[in-house]
Design a protein around this nucleic acid. Structure first.
Length: 224
DNA sequence: ACCCAGGTGGCCC
DNA sequence: GGGCCACATGGG
């Protein structure tokens, strides 16, 4: 049995859940901060950290840069890994200051491939965080792969390794190069994961009928 | 008392 | 290039 097409999966998810209005932030810089804070972390913990941060400073690159790192770490404590994340937010601001004089718009309006390389060169920004920034802060078409994407692909029976770039190439190959579609699709996959397929082997009511047993029998491929 | 969450970098082989 | 580990909180 071959896995269904990605376009069909997208249509089913959209029909079931509707538009997701991502990213949950009110400007590009907030997207970036959220993207770093949510690394391997529950979003509700990130919201508390963001709210603390907003209570302390105006959310601009310059103001964040000026914040003492220990103080910053304390403010974002609820998001976990707070020392690392304070360091990561600071290094992003350093790069922005150094290469763009704190002008975020200038950075985000650069060429998509150049922007990705620039972001990946910043310590603490890996492929998923970089792509989230490109898609949700810069509004440029790139597909964001995450743990849920691997899980979904595994459970649907896609014959592909758990490899960020390879899965991304698959999505780019099978879908139109449309930032609006990439935006909704990634958000819908997160939505799907929050509603279904956590622990139960069969997810009743799941709009794309994921059956985890299918994957468990093929451990050499994408792990759940 | 576990287990998990919208990852990343460092170190080892 | 893959396999492990540290990083840490809050909710189920």
């Amino acid at each position: 049995m071959s896995p269904p097409s990605l376009k069909i999966i997208y249509n089913k998810l959209f029909k079931a859940f509707g538009p997701q209005y991502w990213w949950p932030a009110k400007n590009a810089f907030e997207v970036i901060i959220g993207a770093v804070l949510t690394q391997n972390t529950n979003w509700s913990n990130v919201e508390k950290a963001l709210s603390n941060l907003k209570g302390e400073i105006k959310l601009t690159p310059k103001a964040l840069y000026a914040l003492d790192k220990t103080h910053l770490a304390n403010l974002i404590r609820s998001s976990g890994y707070y020392n690392q994340k304070a360091e990561r937010l600071h290094s992003f601001c350093c790069a922005l200051k150094k290469d763009y004089k704190f002008n975020l718009n200038s950075m985000l309006s650069s060429d998509i491939h150049f922007l990705r390389k620039k972001l990946l060169s910043i310590k603490g920004i890996g492929p998923e965080t970089a792509d989230s920034i490109i898609l949700y802060a810069a509004n440029k078409p790139i597909f964001v792969v995450d743990a849920y994407t691997f899980r979904m692909c595994g459970r649907l029976g896609f014959d592909i390794p758990r490899d960020y770039e390879k899965v991304q190439v698959l999505f780019h190959k099978k879908l139109p190069n449309d930032s609006k579609l990439f935006n909704e699709f990634h958000a819908l996959i997160v939505r799907l994961a929050k509603n279904y397929c956590k622990k139960k082997p069969v997810c009743y009511g799941c709009p794309i009928r994921i059956n985890c047993k299918y994957y468990i029998e093929r451990p050499e491929k994408i792990k759940i």
